[in-house]
Amino acid sequence: MSHATRVRPAVAGQPGIHPTRHAVPWALGAGVVGVQIAFPLTGGGTPTLTVLAVVLFACASVTHALLTRGPAAAVGLVVVAGGGGLAAEAIGLATGLPFGQYAYTGSLGAAVLGVPLVVPAAWIMMAYPSLIVGRRLTAALGRGRGVTTVLGAWALATWDVFLDPQMVEAGHWYWLEPWPTLPGVPGIPVSNFAGWLLVALLMIAALDRVLPDRHDGDDRLPLALWCWTFLSSTMAAAVFFGRPSVALVGGLLMGVVGVPLLVVLSRRGSDA
């Protein structure tokens, strides 16, 4: 066989090798975007839309991990992010540590240890793309695993600057002592952000050891979903939900990794 006609062997997880199989997480991701677009059209979302958005996003993250990194990675993601998120929330409810004193209202459905099941699913949905964001920026910087943990944790924790005000206003949970607050984010104690950052550091560090870093894998979906969350959350807070200060603070904090990530991705697209 001549060199011109030789067929290059397929590489598991390489972009374009299994278009039908990889359509599943992409379809789930498209569903996430569609449901989240409906939030401002319903005055900030309904409990059903909230649960649906989280479930679709979590399934997109888990199926992407399964298809690009294997069954053990998918299970590890659920155990570390879902189990870790559940444990952190249960401890938080019982002790007030590390987030502060808060309580759920019961509007989000079935719960375990007082924690709605959708909440650990939310940790799963966002921890995975945050890990990928940390890895992509670390690779661009030429740094080591510790930098991945810090950047990935920041990518995860800063998302809550947008999440908490929206969920409190929707009546899904409330703070017993909502002070002192994060500047520009009224009603949400600064301890919540500190707690999120602590849990995120532990969670991303664990995930970085459990999930293989496949450089030949197609990580466009988790990167796209994280960027969508960053940009759409900023716009929604500023334009649709009447929270310009939250848009400013959240956009700046999430932008610490979001802006460099967009630059890295745009440069890679230009090179390609």
Results as ranks from 00 to 15, higher is better:
residue 30 A to M: 08
residue 69 R to H: 15
residue 53 A to D: 04
residue 195 G to D: 01
residue 223 L to E: 06
residue 262 L to A: 13
residue 23 A to N: 14
residue 9 P to T: 05
residue 264 V to S: 08
residue 143 R to E: 11
residue 22 H to C: 10
residue 268 R to S: 13
residue 74 A to F: 15
residue 254 M to G: 09
residue 123 W to Y: 15
residue 167 M to K: 13
residue 62 V to Y: 12
residue 73 A to R: 10
residue 16 G to D: 07
residue 191 S to N: 06
residue 263 V to R: 07
residue 16 G to Y: 05
residue 195 G to C: 02
residue 192 N to I: 02
residue 147 V to Q: 05
residue 221 L to S: 06
residue 170 A to M: 10
residue 154 W to D: 00
residue 205 A to Q: 10
residue 241 F to W: 15
residue 124 I to V: 14
residue 6 R to W: 06
residue 198 L to K: 01
residue 261 L to T: 06
residue 218 D to P: 13
residue 231 L to P: 06
residue 227 C to Q: 14
residue 261 L to H: 04
residue 52 L to E: 06
residue 96 G to V: 03
residue 76 G to W: 13
residue 98 P to G: 09
residue 23 A to Q: 13
residue 261 L to N: 02
residue 26 W to H: 10
residue 254 M to S: 13
residue 25 P to G: 10
residue 263 V to T: 03
residue 77 L to M: 04
residue 229 T to H: 10
residue 229 T to G: 12
residue 206 A to N: 08
residue 251 G to P: 03
residue 128 Y to R: 03
residue 77 L to Y: 11
residue 15 P to V: 00
residue 105 T to Q: 05
residue 26 W to N: 03
residue 138 T to S: 13
residue 28 L to K: 08
residue 136 R to E: 13
residue 108 L to P: 01
residue 185 V to Y: 13
residue 140 A to D: 06
residue 86 L to V: 03
residue 139 A to C: 10
residue 228 W to N: 11
residue 238 A to N: 03
residue 84 G to H: 01
residue 113 L to S: 07
residue 215 H to D: 14
residue 219 D to R: 06
residue 244 P to T: 00
residue 202 L to G: 12
residue 223 L to M: 05
residue 231 L to T: 05
residue 239 V to F: 08
residue 235 M to E: 13
residue 271 D to P: 12
residue 232 S to Q: 11
residue 265 L to Q: 11
residue 169 E to L: 10
residue 160 D to W: 00
residue 17 I to Q: 12
residue 71 P to T: 15
residue 60 A to D: 01
residue 32 V to A: 00
residue 1 M to Y: 15
residue 232 S to C: 11
residue 85 G to D: 02
residue 26 W to E: 01
residue 122 A to G: 12
residue 70 G to I: 09
residue 70 G to H: 12
